[in-house]
Simulated assay, not measured.
Amino acid sequence: MALHDQPAYIIKMRAKPGLGDKLFELATAGMQKSGSSDRFIIAREDDDPDVLWNMEVFKSEEAKAGYEGSPLADELRDEIIGLLAEPPMRVAVHPYSAAPVA
């Protein structure tokens, strides 16, 4: 499967003040446990440590659907939503290219 055929999300979440560390811990643990992602990047804003950006590339449409309907996704979603100061922003994307920088 070509990279541009893999479904992905870019997600922005803002934790309630002081809950940024917990949000990052849950999001990172969830990505590692799910097994549905081919790769992911979780980044923290320099100017606001309570803001998380996540780009997650799924192995396939089937892996994405399997994760989204899983008990793990439900559990993480409930825990994460409780930490947020505002609704998350999620944009569905497909990677165009990815390569290491020489």
Score class of each variant (00 low, 15 high):
P71D: 11
D21L: 04
Y9Q: 14
L3F: 07
S37Y: 03
R39H: 03
A8W: 10
A73T: 02
G69N: 15
E45K: 13
L23C: 02
L83G: 11
P7E: 13
Y67R: 07
E25A: 14
I42C: 04
I11W: 02
L84Y: 09
D47S: 07
D46L: 02
T28F: 03
A29T: 08
L83V: 12
E79L: 15
G20R: 10
W53S: 02
S36V: 06
R77P: 01
A92L: 06
D78R: 15
A85S: 14
L83Y: 03
S36P: 00
E62N: 04
E61W: 03
I81A: 11
D38N: 06
N54D: 04
A85G: 13
D74M: 14
K59L: 10
V101L: 15
I41V: 02
D38Y: 09
L23V: 05
D38R: 12
P95R: 08
M1H: 10
E86D: 08
P7M: 12
G69W: 04
A99T: 14
A63M: 05
G35W: 12
H94M: 11
L76A: 03
P17K: 13
G18V: 09
G82M: 09
S34H: 00
E45Q: 07
D74C: 06
A2P: 11
G82R: 09
Y67W: 12
R39T: 09
E56W: 02
G18R: 11
G69Y: 08
P7V: 12
P71F: 05
A65C: 03
I11N: 08
A102W: 09
M89T: 15
K16T: 09
H4N: 14
P7G: 10
R77E: 11
L23F: 04
